[in-house]
Amino acid sequence: MTVTTRLRSGETRTAGVAPSRTRRRRVASLKAFLYVAPALAFSLIFLIVPTLQTAWYSLYDWNGLSVATWAGVQNYIDIVQDEQLRDSFMHVGVLVVFYSFLPIAIALLLTMVISRAHALRGMSFFRTVLFLPQVIASVVIATTWLSIYSPNGLLNTLLRAIGLDSLTHVWLGDFNTALVSVGFVGTWLNVGLCLVLFLSGVGNVQPELFEAARLDGASGLQEFFGITLPALRGQITVALTLTVVSSLKTFDLVYITTRGGPGNSTSVPAFEAYNRAFNSGQVGSAASVAVVLTIGILLITALIGRLQPKDTE
């Protein structure tokens, strides 16, 4: 992608210059190309070629070992027709709510509270604690939550301690609660990230604005909707992009906590792609899931990008 924009913008800049300068610039561009070559070669070998290969595989029926047979677009038709694959895309839709919308809403709420309490002591401590989940390896997080959700884990113990025995569940083993339980881990994970982003955004707002609003007798809510929220538009876009993409790519949490179970109630496209390619010998189908997922992520990212205010680009 980088290469395209660079060359294209170069193209417009060189338009209509004298022939002698063109030659000089051609030499210069060759030199420039040499500078780009290592990075380009790297992305060709490790990104572009595998991507094209994956797209190619997706048109075959292949077990990964024997000669493949041509399947045309059948693998793509299956994504719509196969209940299991269709469900996996539905599940990821639910996860977007938990990974992205909820954390952003919670972080905004916290921002509203925290930004009014400038003098809160130990602020940096709380910020670190809230950001901590982002720093811990996801395998560790998944394992921790596995234990929290287990039949005699922390969550059920807590519920029993406060007399809510009727609410205890085998959270990850129950068809009704498994997906929500996985989603909630994502919420917990992403709140810190969003909060740190938003707090830094609020820090950029000139204090005079708040002062003026307060002098005019604005309430906390008015202040938030009048000043804070508009000022955070850029940060919200960034948070949306990061969290939506991370939710669409979810694999590690599902792999460790449920393996798509119970039944298929927590299967997600990334897990299906892995499982089909490496376990059940459906490489073509796995590739088609990966292609659809990639295109989906690119489209959604582009759409979110349109929310970005022009001046902060």
Partner: peptide
């Protein structure tokens, strides 16, 4: 170049 590389790698059915 990228198309050529990709095609040469994938010219025939995977696994053959």
């Amino acid at each position: 170049v990228s198309v050529a590389v990709a095609l040469s790698l994938t010219a025939c059915a995977p696994g053959s």
